[in-house]
Design a protein around this nucleic acid. Structure first.
Lengths: 215, 215, 215, 215
DNA sequence: TATGAATGAGCCTTCATTCAT
DNA sequence: GATGAATGAAGGCTCATTCAT
């Protein structure tokens, strides 16, 4: 085997796990874990059923990989983005929330919250990991922005611990929507308009009365 | 068998379907539809597996009944409650939102949104029914309160169609939480405190700037 | 369900495990454990594949039951038979050896030694049970007869512990033969003649020189 | 590549088949044919799984080779050894029986009888070959010694055809033991002591009454 | 009406076999 | 010749569904 061929081959081999988790994610989100057949996962990834087992020990191991390896990169990317905007709490918070949507909610990863909520009780260990490492880190970003705004007197003095959940809920809801009731709507909801209405409400609710209008 | 015994027996017989849907709901919510075994549903309802088929044609028919017969009564009860409070939009909206929590979110029915979201794509017809008849009617209640407040000049002029979703999301999130990540929390979130922070944010966001502080 | 029907039904149900272990034994002996399909076991027992799992948790549990429940009754029967012949060592030993053949070797149980030898390393726990509870008890019978003969001066003073194995080997060999090379023989070996030659050799080897000819 | 290296490499290449059959034999004996994975055979031989198929067409072909090529050389060696001792039947027979143990029973080949008995019905053609070419030739050696002894008046007039089987059984039993119940024994049986007890019994059983004590 | 033994289609998983490198 | 990734047929096991009682 010459070097080039090995390289191509090897590139293929290294890409396999992600090809498989991507295929698995889309089907798990669409149908749920138990209702998804590994045959279909393999077919969507363009390989045979047996190939799956070269990379994952079991269906459950595949699920774990889908969650663990799916979202951590996006999370790290997000954390990197929001480490510098230290001076304007409103802008910082707005960018974090919109950034979540653009980096996760609007992408293929947007189904992970739905999937993880549906399966949390069936996979307590994965749920614990997701709760601590994924949700925990995401919430910390939001909370720091809230605290900064409160300290600066830009935001009202809210309970940041609880408000984080309230703030995230409509975003998660919107992401989940695409994989649940979207097809029931006669005319599709425009995510952009939903986000505008959401941010408008949120910042009117957060900014202190005398502050200038939210942008 | 005397008349009283017959009556009790008959009451029992008529109660069977609901005993079964109740058992099924709790398991469907906990594990998901596909991962729930009819054996377990029957056992939880205290009957044998075969008995299930005297009342429901199939597992899917059971699911349909769980959704259709589970939530419509609560919905009707809710609609009846909120038909009269016509004069104070803020109080009306607050009571609708809190009422949803108390009548649905905090009860055994609180898992239905989670269940229905998870299975919407597997049961498009049930999802359509739920979207139109359950969510549609619930959203209509909220929207009417919003419109009233806007017309009266109590609320800012928001896009009521979109804001309804934003308003409901944190409530649904809280209800779903109990069946997903609640067990991951080191110290449990207090629903009452969450609701207070939520309503505080929402009404600060909705009331016009000059209006008196939300209660 | 009336009493008679229930009885017949119930008789059926109680007989099932043994019907299944009997079918399994014959196939395990014929093909080996790993090469035997549960489909075939079920078919031979006249039931469907799923029925097997009403009575045995797994293929391995079926194997365990085949061994444990197959041979212990025969063993107990054997022990009961040979508890009384205390006065004539030669006759006692002869009857024990022939009795083993008639009660086990020549019956459907005759394949168990072959099966157990083939699978001992795959099922160490079952092997331990078989070694201790089955072989151990069988060898003890033979050894007691040997000792009695030695004490009485009928048998030469041999190492009874080791000779037990030597004595049993040709019997086990004959039983195993039926499930291995029997079909390779152009003309079938006559078990009766084999046993006669075996006993003739054994008693000529055991009896003290001066003793009268073995019968 | 210099001549020496080529030679070593080539020696290696020619040794491959035997390295593979040796690895396969040990695993087949330990676990049985069906329960042995070719992955493990290849790993034990230090090659990759694909390499196996350069030398054997299928798993069954490997089994055939294990039996055919494994034991025939030992058999030929044995036949060569015992062609000359024509004058002393007792010594001849004793050396044949002990020779079988040392050449086959005590070596890696000792598991073949166990393996072949277990798989005879699954591989009728190999069984036929083994029965005719291996067992047949071995038995013939023993039978000739028996006949010689009977003709000379050293041995009693036994049915040599049947007694051959009786004589071989304890040896095969001892060889099989190592691969079955050996690990169940609290204290291991000493093969040498077993063989002594066995030969003592056998020759006391065979020699005519008046003959001098067996050695 | 109620039961629970029986069924068999279907899925996860394994592993002998192939083949591109 | 040697490798090991890929294949897919086959088998253990589950569970929704049926039906005799």
């Amino acid at each position: 085997m010459n070097a080039e061929a090995r390289a191509r081959f090897s590139r293929r081999k290294e890409a396999r796990p992600q090809e498989l988790t991507t295929a698995a994610l889309s089907l798990f989100v669409e149908r749920g874990f138990a209702a998804t057949k590994l045959d279909d996962v393999a077919a969507r990834a363009g390989v045979s059923k047996g190939t799956l087992y070269l990379y994952f020990d079991s269906k459950e191991a595949l699920f774990t990989a889908v969650i663990r390896e799916g979202i951590v990169p996006a999370l790290e990317q997000g954390e990197a983005l929001f480490q510098c905007h230290g001076d304007d709490p409103e802008r910082l918070l707005r960018e974090i929330l919109l950034g979540w949507w653009e980096l996760i909610g609007a992408t293929d990863l947007g189904g992970i919250p739905k999937l993880m909520m549906a399966e949390a009780q069936n996979f307590p260990e994965v749920a614990k990991f997701y709760f601590d490492e994924v949700m925990g880190r995401g919430r910390e970003l939001v909370r720091r922005a809230l605290r900064l705004g409160i300290e600066r007197g830009t935001f009202r003095s809210v309970n940041d611990e609880l408000i984080v959940n309230v703030l995230m809920a409509p975003l998660i809801h919107l992401a989940t929507w695409r994989y649940s009731f979207a097809c029931c709507e006669p005319k599709r909801m425009d995510p952009r308009a939903y986000l505008d209405a959401y941010l408008d409400l949120v910042f009117h609710g957060l900014l202190v009365a005398g502050a200038k209008e939210p942008r």
